[in-house]
Nucleic acid binder design. Structure first.
Lengths: 246, 246
DNA sequence: CGATACGTTGACGGAAATCAACCCCGGTGG
DNA sequence: CCACCGGGGTTGATTTCCGTCAACGTATCG
């Protein structure tokens, strides 16, 4: 009856990284009606003040949630990658209290709230799983909070890179400790509460110490142990099922 | 059959502040089996690394969630008041990635996960409501993130005080812009990523400007308009149903 | 009446912001 | 083909907010 959407595999891969899925649950997910959309970089997907009636699944690309203060300073709350549904919360919080935008050219799949509700109704375990996902989301916020409050710029950046590596690896976007990081230094700074200048200097430190290499959006972690230590990184807060972290 | 627990009224009042409740839902909540416990200040309720099988409803008192970095620096993630279930997330995230502790002498009510699951199963709308509550929780984290990243110490403290006033008012713990704030300046600092000394100085500023008065745990907002402006506070992110804010 | 916890004050230092150039590189258009 | 342009990255000089250290005041309590 309904079309099967191969784009949903990104979602399935992501969900399987945080809990096992039954085959009929996967089948139900694959039957979700999707509205595909491609966006260039730096476009709003949903804006603060909106009351969306659908959620946005990221199939490809990088996105972020952010707010802008009265004085025009941007704070990025989180980064989102393939398989994430960054505005899943709009299912229960109807008014967007922040914005969601692309950071790189992205392929998006929109899912109607009603379709999600129907899915959850017939597969309550999937509902629990989505809930779990939003809870992990909150856990990530808490980690960022620790970084902003109590870690140096150096530790903060290291921690963020560790987090991105682990999350990207969970959806198989990391090869040999290297991944594509389409973020400008200004964007990294806006995420970590740092100025662009300082972000630049700390990144240079990380490179000169030999922890990472970074050129033109290609990031490679040269010393995973060292980077984790620098960021006091412990992946427990991501609550992944596969613990072959190291 | 089951006993009716009047302590649950704190929870009902809180839930009604974020969504309307049907009378049979209230009745079901009142039938929840509770295990009461009284704790003095500065005691852990749940500790990082625990895998609890019950949630903690705060009936009376102040609590906070927090983490401690390797160097022993504490970061408080959130404050919790009457009606909150700060570790509701343990329902779906079995390993605690942070600790929960009292800040003042508190009256607590523990609810078995199984009882919550049964409740949610028979009243799915309550499940949605609990989910919504954890989403608001995350929204509060995002606001704190904005503060830590992009606001001055002055704005951060002002914002926090605004948030506490609105949340406390939602559960009827504010009278005439005054409320009980049993937090030390060290605790405020740990929440906002500030040193105790600096917290002290900024609080003095807020007092000398005439925005607040604060003595011995008694906080009174003298200039609500001014305090909101100082903190760029907009209560939308709390997603309360009663909007008679100002 | 000391002990202890919390608040307050001053002096000093440091991490990071700000300001202001300048470089590099990939487009693009004349 | 080269000049121009703009976005991102890099660098240095300067400033500032806030942390740290250390002392002292003040209140509550056993």
């Amino acid at each position: 009856m309904d079309a099967i959407h191969p784009h949903t595999v990104a979602l399935i891969r992501k969900l399987e990284s945080i809990a096992p899925l039954a085959s009929q649950e996967k089948a139900a997910l694959l039957r979700l009606p999707l509205r595909m959309k491609t966006l260039p970089a730096n476009q709003d997907i949903v804006s603060e003040g909106d009351t969306p009636s659908e959620c946005c699944l990221i199939v490809e690309g990088f996105a972020c949630r952010y707010s802008v203060t009265d004085e025009g300073r941007r704070q990025i709350h989180s980064f989102h990658i393939s398989g994430d549904i960054p505005d899943l919360q709009s299912l229960h919080l109807h008014l967007m209290d922040h914005s969601l935008g692309t950071l790189s050219p992205s392929k998006l799949a929109f899912i109607q709230h009603d379709d999600l509700r129907t899915l959850i109704h017939s597969h309550p375990r999937l509902g629990d799983l989505f809930w779990r996902d939003t809870l992990i989301d909150a856990a990530v916020f808490r980690q960022w909070l620790i970084g902003m409050g109590r870690r140096s710029a150096y530790g903060r950046i290291a921690h963020l890179l560790c987090e991105l590596l682990v999350r990207l690896r969970a959806v198989e976007l990391v090869e040999d400790y290297a991944f594509h990081l389409p973020l400008t230094q200004a964007e990294l700074g806006d995420a970590l509460g740092l100025s662009t200048v300082h972000t630049n200097r700390v990144l240079q430190d990380l490179r000169s110490i030999g922890l990472i290499s970074l050129r033109g959006g290609a990031l490679k972690v040269l010393n995973w142990e060292g980077l984790q230590k620098a960021g006091e990184f412990d992946p427990a807060y991501l609550h992944l099922v596969k613990k072959e972290a190291l």
